[in-house]
Design a protein around this nucleic acid. Sequence first.
RNA 1: GCACUCGUGGCGCAAUUGGAUAGCGUGUCAGCCUCCGACGCUGAAGGUUGUGGGUUCGAUCCCCGCCGGGUGCACCA
Length: 561
Amino acid sequence: MDYKRYIAQHIKAEGVSEDELCGLVTVPPDASMGDYALPCFKLAKVLRKSPALIAEAIAKDYPLDGVVSEAKALNGYVNFRIARGGLAKDVLTRILSEGERYGASTMGEGKTICIDYSSVNIAKPFHIGHLSTTVIGGALYRIFKFLGYNTVGINHLGDYGTQFGKLIAAYKRWGNKEEAEKGGIHAINDLYVRFNEEADEGMEAEAREYFRLIESGDREANELFDWFKSLTLSYVKGIYEKLHITFDSYAGERFYTDKMAPVVEELKEKGLLKESNGAQIVDLEPYGMPPCLILRSDGASLYATRDLAAAIYRKKTYDFDKCLYVVAYQQNLHFKQVFKVLELMGKDWAKDLVHVAYGMVSLEDGAMSTRKGKVVWLEDVINRCVEKAYSVIDEKNPTLENKKEIAEKVGVGAVIFSALYNNKIKDIVFSYDKALNFDGETSVYVQYTCARASSVLAKAAEGGYEAAIPETYTPCDQEFELVKALADFPETVKAAAERYEPSFVARWCVDTAQKFNKFYFDCKILQDEETRAFRLALTKATLSALSNGLALLGIGVPEKM
RNA sequence: GCACUCGUGGCGCAAUUGGAUAGCGUGUCAGCCUCCGACGCUGAAGGUUGUGGGUUCGAUCCCCGCCGGGUGCACCA
């Protein structure tokens, strides 16, 4: 039940619509005040009375029933108390019957949303800086799917540019097949790094020539490139499997090679293209932005050109209602320019393009630099977190079966969670100290809470105790706080989607786990006969809802750990 | 220089987009395992929300100035 709506429906206030009232209803800062509250300050203008008087009047006239048990005026607010038993019964019934679908919705039915995320570069290993786009994008993908949207995950591969000329030049100079196959993508990246260190004029020219050869369809150059590409894809596939990331399309930059000319033509037709210093640009001066470069003075296309072609292609192919670009805020200006150019081209759907910007990752001693070897590889982070998880489990629970499998869930979960817990715009300073610390507000805490709940449920099963929702039951404070947290989940998921913030879901998980642990300590679940069935139902519902929350983030829930 | 962005207890972060007494984690100190899993729980200390104005019944949130950090600003992606 939507309690805000219910309360709004029953408030008597002349000249104020139900929708307005519903929008005003909030949750008080402290549960001791009430469960919901209506601030009356905005009503003062319409009703021409002081907020305090309005609150008094509304509280007095509010029809109490089995749903709302109290309405009290305080400091210009009306505080409402929900009948605990009713809410608890409502929420638990819903969670236990909906199970994995609790929190899901059909609000997105018939709508398509494209999400461009992760977008790896060919021949570049994953480093810690690639984690955010991958797991934020992956979480948004699942969240929107959960809300009923048709979601299209796109890995916009970085597979175009003179860098691949350099790569081939480096490989031809120093590389060989055996080493590359043995060393994989890291060996290939080493060649590229070396090339950048040692390159002189001649080598640069060589690289440009190789890139030209790729472009002109030269067989050897393309075979090498394709080989690098397949090595990269099989490498990232391993990482994606660990992180539970999937894509529906791997159409990268190269895919748009033959789709840019029509875009340039269209820009020309619409009179948007201008020559400037030999290059073709779209002037964005009237919008306070630097020009958007479309063609270099040598006629070659640019990053923006391909993004224009990609957006148009995606609209044509998927007819999206929204298209998200999960890319670091470094590229704020780039996306603003591209979106503006599309708008100037008369694409009314340009408003549906959203740059989901997130913060950057640096190391304690400054920015990462692949060239200087100052880089933290993602697989190393994952491996170390999994090892740490294993050693903790081995120490605290040595007889546990499937220790490896569980350590994997815990360690990988910690890596994912670290990138999803804070608002995405925040910069992150990576350190192994923090990454390997599983205490406090972490996925490990949430998983531990789940394992604890599972354990109680297992014990109950042994004793033949059943979970049930009694007809009448008045939850105590701890039980009720937990119930309210559980009730918040569907709204939390929606808010996360609306604001493209997976952290809302992550924080909900921690908050709910905290409430469960308080409940767990203060209320013995199995002890008393009168409370046992309800408490088991509450435990079961918590485990179920937390599992849904973590699943949206791509994190698994072990039964034991 | 211009644009965007961030600034909240020692440290890392929240605050339902303008609401009530600014919350949580970590760290420090003090407690809690003959009692459902101590990767946990309870308590204490710790704040002029960078700073100065403004708008408002009300500002961590909105506007302006200043200070500090980050990012970006034409042929890389």
